Simulated assay, not measured.
Amino acid sequence: MAMESNVLTGAGVEENQDFSEYVANLQLHMTLQARNLVPPLKQTLADSRQQLLHQTQAHFEKLASRQGF
């Protein structure tokens, strides 16, 4: 009975290690996929600043064009 218990425990530990390795690989894969799906923060920040600058310039040009100098 003790030998069967050791064999079952050894198999259970091995299955647990296999599962842990599978989960670690899955997490790595998901992290790499997320990097490909989400644009870099620096690029987005620069684009949003540039877009805000263009909107502000257009707004002031519109206001200036409506003024009667």
Rank of each mutant, 00 (worst) to 15 (best):
A2G: 13
A2L: 15
A2E: 15
A2F: 15
A2N: 15
M3W: 07
E4F: 13
E4C: 11
E4G: 12
S5R: 08
S5M: 10
S5P: 08
N6E: 14
N6Q: 13
V7C: 08
L8Y: 02
L8D: 08
T9I: 06
T9G: 10
T9E: 00
G10Y: 02
A11N: 07
A11W: 05
A11M: 02
V13Q: 01
V13W: 06
V13G: 03
V13Y: 04
E14T: 03
E14F: 04
E15T: 06
N16S: 14
N16G: 07
D18R: 09
D18G: 11
D18V: 00
F19T: 11
F19S: 15
S20V: 08
S20W: 06
S20H: 07
S20F: 09
E21K: 07
E21G: 00
Y22M: 15
Y22V: 08
V23N: 07
A24L: 14
A24Q: 07
N25Y: 04
L26V: 08
L26C: 04
L26T: 06
L26Q: 04
Q27A: 13
H29E: 06
H29R: 12
H29Y: 09
H29M: 07
M30G: 10
M30Q: 12
T31G: 03
T31A: 06
L32D: 10
L32H: 13
Q33F: 01
A34V: 15
A34M: 12
A34W: 07
R35F: 12
R35W: 10
R35P: 02
R35A: 04
L37M: 15
L37D: 14
L37H: 14
L37W: 15
L37F: 14
V38T: 14
V38H: 03
P40C: 06
K42R: 10
K42H: 14
K42T: 14
Q43T: 11
Q43G: 01
T44E: 10
T44L: 09
L45F: 14
L45H: 08
L45W: 07
A46N: 06
A46T: 09
A46Y: 05
D47H: 00
D47K: 00
D47L: 01
S48Y: 07
S48H: 05
R49D: 03
R49K: 04
R49T: 08
R49W: 10
R49G: 05
L52W: 05
L52H: 05
L53S: 05
L53N: 02
T56M: 02
Q57S: 06
Q57L: 10
A58R: 11
A58G: 13
A58N: 11
A58I: 10
H59T: 02
H59M: 06
H59E: 07
F60L: 04
F60R: 05
E61F: 09
E61W: 09
E61S: 02
E61P: 01
E61Y: 12
E61H: 11
E61T: 02
L63T: 04
L63R: 06
L63G: 02
A64F: 08
S65Y: 02
R66S: 05
Q67E: 01
F69D: 11
